[in-house]
């Protein structure tokens, strides 16, 4: 039971990391109906912007650095959309997929050339710089590396770190902010209108080009903030987002490419599946006991399943194939109707 809960919590934490890439991806899909394979790298470069402003060049306040990083990432995203992607017809998938792959390569390479593919020490940690509320100094609480519940205070013996909680909570808060922007502001309404029907959006007086730029800017800013938040967890280095990209793709497709909240859910589901399924399978003793109890005593097989930890991408791919088989546009995606 304890292990189970522990894995659930680990899963949530990984899910938060995946959502950081998956949610902007969906935002960009909603704006320009394309998959941005460069999303992970855009988030990475955003995290590096924050790092530069917070430690290397200016030594700014971490929060200020994060805001500047968000602004720079947003500008970068707008520039990419305007110059490289707008000239293309988004319904022809191959060219735009290739362009985003090219951007992925270039950003990764530039980052690699500058920062040498090495992990940077002490990336800025927003959670540790949270304000003091008087009754509760959040920043200090987050810095507290002790385990949240020790075996004294909780009989289950869960090991939860303070900033894991912080990470999951801040992602939820970011999601809430995104909800407010998309559902409660005029700009958000216009964004949803453009993604629903571009032609009619023009007819109600929406400047569609500006809204596309807004979508990319929003996505990249969100990605940058998310990346700054998760960077202390997964080390800040130019390849930090490359392994996450695949999980994020799975998460985005799971929830449906045009549903932001579906992507967040998808992130958590992929994270949970990985930590729970892989956790149990690789736990050879546990697995052997289970198999013994149903009459299978095959040591080879147990060992083989255990080696699945070396292949952590397989469960999300199987999940993705299963979900898309039954719902070809993801769990919450809008169904498209083909016209002749």
């Amino acid at each position: 039971m304890t292990t189970f809960l522990q894995r659930i919590i680990d899963g949530f934490q990984n899910g938060a990391i995946y959502s950081v890439v998956a949610i902007p991806m969906v935002l960009i899909f909603k704006a320009t109906t394309l998959i941005n394979f460069a999303q992970g790298e855009l988030a990475m470069i955003g995290a590096f912007f924050g790092f530069i402003f917070a430690t290397q060049v200016f030594g700014l306040n971490v929060w200020l650095a994060a805001i500047i990083a968000m602004a720079l990432a947003a500008a970068l995203g707008m520039g990419i959309e305007r110059s490289l992607l707008r000239p293309f017809d988004p319904t022809d998938h191959l060219p735009v997929v290739l362009i985003t792959l090219g951007i992925f390569y270039i950003i990764n390479a530039v980052g690699g050339d500058i920062w040498n593919y090495q992990a940077q020490i002490n990336p800025p940690n927003l959670l540790h710089e949270m304000p003091d509320l008087g009754f509760w100094d959040i920043g200090v609480w987050m810095q507290d590396q002790t385990i949240l519940f020790t075996s004294d205070t909780n009989p289950l013996g869960l090991r939860i770190q303070h900033d894991s909680i912080g990470l999951i909570l801040s992602l939820l808060i970011m999601l809430g902010a995104l909800y407010m922007i998309l559902e409660k502001t005029k700009m958000g309404l216009a964004f949803r209108a453009v993604s629903s029907n571009t032609e009619s959006s023009r007819l109600v007086g929406i400047r569609v080009g500006r809204i596309l730029s807004f979508g990319w800017a929003l996505a990249c800013a969100f990605g940058a903030l998310g990346a700054i938040l998760v960077a202390p967890r997964i080390t800040l280095q130019p390849n930090m987002m490359a392994p996450i990209l695949i999980y994020a793709l799975a998460a985005a497709a799971f929830g449906g490419l045009d549903n932001v909240y579906g992507a967040a859910l998808g992130g958590f589901v992929v994270g949970l599946i990985n930590s729970v399924v892989l956790g149990y399978i690789s736990d050879v003793r546990w697995l052997r006991a289970r198999l013994d109890s149903i009459g299978i005593e095959d040591a080879e097989f147990v060992e083989g399943l255990g080696s699945l930890t070396a292949a952590p991408l397989i469960p999300p791919v199987i999940l993705l194939l299963t979900v898309l088989w039954f719902r070809p546009t993801g769990l919450f995606g809008t169904k498209t109707i083909a016209r002749v």
Partner: peptide
């Protein structure tokens, strides 16, 4: 694009 994502994964 769903196919593209699945096959990439």
């Amino acid at each position: 694009l769903y196919l593209a994502m699945t096959t990439v994964a």
